[in-house]
């Protein structure tokens, strides 16, 4: 199962790339896996969007989904 992972802002600085392919069954599992791999994410506050929609609870992921990790917004 391939999920497209997009990251932005300081999260990209921690992960080292803005786009990558990952495998995970749901958003909680993905988050836990990323924090294990990149401990710097642990103290960061970020929202998650699945296919461009913000999620507020654990969400099942399927092949081809795009998951984006969004640090606090600072536009304007």
């Amino acid at each position: 199962m391939a999920i497209k992972l997009l990251t932005f802002g300081q999260i990209t600085e921690i992960i080292g790339q803005s786009e990558s392919a990952v495998n995970a069954l749901d958003s909680d599992a993905l988050k836990a896996q990323l924090i294990r791999q990149f401990p710097g994410l642990k103290d960061l506050h970020f929202a998650i969007a699945v296919n461009k929609k913000l999620i507020s609870k654990n969400t099942d992921l399927k092949d081809g989904d795009t998951v984006a990790l969004l640090p606090p917004f600072s536009g304007g």
């Binding site: 969007a49 917004f73 600072s74 536009g75």
Partner: peptide, 14 residues
């Protein structure tokens, strides 16, 4: 509109 953009637009300033 300005408040919605500041709050909800996925934009980041370095």
């Amino acid at each position: 509109i300005v408040e919605r953009i500041k709050e909800q637009a996925p934009v980041w300033g370095r």
